[in-house]
Design a protein around this nucleic acid. Sequence first.
DNA 1: TAGATTGTTAATCGATTAACAATC
DNA 2: TAGATTGTTAATCGATTAACAATC
Lengths: 215, 215
Amino acid sequence: MAKYPGVSMMVTRRLPRYYRCLEDLIQKGVERISSREFAQIIGFTASQIRQDLNCFGGFGQQGYGYNVSVLYQEIGRILSVDREYPAILVGAGNLGLALVNHMGFQQKGFKLTGIFDKNPSIIGKIVGGWPVCDVEEMGAFCKAHKPVAAALCVPDSAALEVAERLVRNGVRGFWNFTHHDLSLLYKQEDVAVENVYLGDSLMTLTFLVTELIEE
Amino acid sequence: MAKYPGVSMMVTRRLPRYYRCLEDLIQKGVERISSREFAQIIGFTASQIRQDLNCFGGFGQQGYGYNVSVLYQEIGRILSVDREYPAILVGAGNLGLALVNHMGFQQKGFKLTGIFDKNPSIIGKIVGGWPVCDVEEMGAFCKAHKPVAAALCVPDSAALEVAERLVRNGVRGFWNFTHHDLSLLYKQEDVAVENVYLGDSLMTLTFLVTELIEE
DNA sequence: TAGATTGTTAATCGATTAACAATC
DNA sequence: TAGATTGTTAATCGATTAACAATC
């Protein structure tokens, strides 16, 4: 059973925003904050912040507000960013490598445990401390290391096949950079999918810019 | 004045999905499609599809449905993906390079016209056909080439300064990969911001996976 | 205690879905 | 013409905002 069954996707997606914002506040030495001040900084309404937080518990105190570091810890716990779920990267192209080098998988709930690619000219190279392995070894690796999630940076054409293979091997979450909506595939089964459609994001910007500059 | 002033962000963000899905259908040789069939494939409801499309015009025909290639063209036009707005990339680290090499800026409304970085060891290298230039040259470059948009792949700490410099030089849109919410900064001014919070996206997945696997 | 600010309920707003008349 | 499916209006649903009593 899910710990927070009633929580909407809207609220879920705001949690990381709160978390990061609180991190900044700690950095700046802020100890307490009211929903009103918080709202100003983060760009939501005070009502929404209080409403959101109360999905998970009463972390504030009337007349005082919220203790920044307490709230930070609480949201971190809710997000489970202190976990180290074993995760793998499939597809060590430009984007995949950028994610490994640029992003901290750790401190975001995951621990990278393997990198896989199909391209023989990449296999064997060391990336972010890990040798790139042949995708053919992926099945055996999963049986041994039981990765919980996978970052999918393979070409669109390979997305479905790779995803299905991983699900058969116990992977329960995808950070999906392909353009195949995997959440459609796994609606029934218990697989979490976070789609990152970079192409769509750029096209959205195109639309917005055009709306702005075309008279 | 905006061409489509009443269109919500919700609808806007679905447009690229429609566009890509139609592309796939064309590839598969599908000529016509009803909102019902389309809904099945894309994972929305038929009502929503018809509602969405009618924000922009009546592209269908009663009793027939939608002509796939006509609809594809129409949505492409609405999104302005056939434009070639001059755009630059600032920050040629792993992520920036991945975007240049992996993404097609062209065919998504933009044309990359320059790449900038602060790091002397990167400056001068050729990436995606363009030499990486010193950020110090950015002002002069903007005056000469008038880029309309910028992909921001600089460290968080540099985000605000770079963004402000670019806005002063006429940039009207940001594809923002930093964790500073630029849309907060330019609420009043006419600057479009598409925030891509990869870290938040990964934390969201962490939350979803935890909800799934913790009993 | 008095002032401040939460937690929570009620009101509003917007987005999605359902229904159906218009029409190809 | 009859069948199918749109465009569009009305109903529902969910998310955001406002309000205020509870309480630190």
